[in-house]
């Protein structure tokens, strides 16, 4: 019997740090903020963190799926805005219908991106960039470029809190994350996503329908973005021009921080993207409880993202040099 593959079982300290350092960092940050600011570790603050994060969590969950297949979706922010606008448009109808309509809109928007990328073989970067602008234009048109209130039934949903601490919106976003993670790790489709991200040509050779996989991934991303938009209308009671604005950048940043690679083929929703979103939210929240000027935020977040993508490139470089 030939005993093979022994070198594969040995992982150096640097590799372990690169893969799991994020969680240590997150923990350290929480402890530090908890120490320097007494309002940080309170239940009400964490409810706030949860509500601040839940919209990004939904978008991030979908983005993970798309990035695992090796593509990218820059449209999530605009799709969220589009869905929120749909909720506004259907204010006269019962809440369930509004939610359903908004979800369908998100799915269709995702399908358009997916179709163009998967079947017309267009670059996902540029295509979703273009669609992001187009969808934004449509949403601005529909809402008249200003703030619009949504139906009272939706608003009522946004006020629901469990145990006085866990808002419904937060709970829903966590449920979505669990769902998406299960899809990624335990279903055939999930395995196909990783396969396509690893090597499209190899996936094709073993008979995986690559375009279909990508299309479904973009639909999932569209759905995630849609739910993000729906949740934001629930929470705010309105749709504004800031809905979803810049969310694609935050989502990608959070997801890459959380271990999903820009090169495709690896990543997770839970615990990865969750930790990434939490990191960004905790930083903003922590800085806020210390009264730091909001003008500093972009610098801090930008620097964190810089470090995250540097590490991602490092990991990728180590991987490819080991393959030689």
């Amino acid at each position: 019997m030939l005993r093979l593959g022994l070198r594969a079982d040995w992982a150096g300290l640097r590799d372990i740090l690169l893969q799991h350092g994020l969680y240590g960092l997150l923990l350290a940050l929480i402890l530090v903020f908890g120490a320097i600011s007494h309002s940080f570790l309170t239940v009400s603050n964490w409810t706030q963190i949860g509500t601040a994060a839940c919209f990004l969590l939904c978008a991030a969950a979908g983005e993970v799926i798309v990035m695992i297949t090796g593509e990218i979706d820059l449209g999530v922010g605009s799709i969220a805005y589009l869905s929120a606008s749909t909720v506004y448009l259907t204010s006269a109808f019962p809440a369930a219908f509004s939610v359903f309509a908004a979800l369908v809109v998100g799915l269709i928007a995702g399908a358009v991106s997916g179709g163009l990328v998967a079947y017309a073989k267009m670059s996902s970067l540029l295509t979703t960039l273009g669609l992001m602008i187009a969808y934004r234009g449509v949403s601005l048109l529909v809402t008249g470029g200003t703030v619009q209130a949504v139906g009272p039934s939706i608003v009522r949903l946004g006020r629901i809190q469990y145990v006085h601490a866990l808002p419904l919106v937060v709970l829903l976003s966590l449920v979505l994350m669990c769902l998406y993670q299960i899809v990624a790790s335990s279903t055939k489709f999930g395995a196909y996503c990783y396969a396509v991200g690893n090597s499209e040509s190899a996936a094709r050779k073993v008979g995986i329908g690559v375009p279909t996989v990508k299309l479904i991934a973009f639909c999932m991303s569209g759905a995630g973005a849609a739910i993000s938009g729906i949740l934001s209308t629930m929470y705010l009671g309105q749709v504004t021009t800031f809905t979803g604005r810049g969310m694609e950048f935050e989502a990608i940043a959070a997801v890459v921080i959380g271990g999903t690679s820009l090169f495709g083929g690896r990543g997770s929703v839970l615990p990865g993207a969750l930790a990434g979103v939490l990191l960004l939210t905790v930083i903003s929240n922590g800085l806020g409880t210390r009264g730091v000027s909001p003008y500093v935020y972009p610098f801090v977040i930008g620097s964190v993202v810089f470090v995250a993508i540097y590490l991602d490139s490092l990991k990728n470089w180590r991987r490819s040099s080991r393959a030689r």
Binding site: S186, K188, N198, K205, V206
Partner: peptide
């Protein structure tokens, strides 16, 4: 080579007929 780097040896071998769960066929 037709291989999927980040995935395991077992997943690579059975990519074309991953073992479906008996109750829910899309789980593996």
């Amino acid at each position: 080579l037709v291989s999927f780097g980040s995935q395991t040896v077992a997943e690579n071998i059975f990519m074309t007929h991953l073992f479906p769960n008996r109750i829910f066929p899309f789980f593996v």
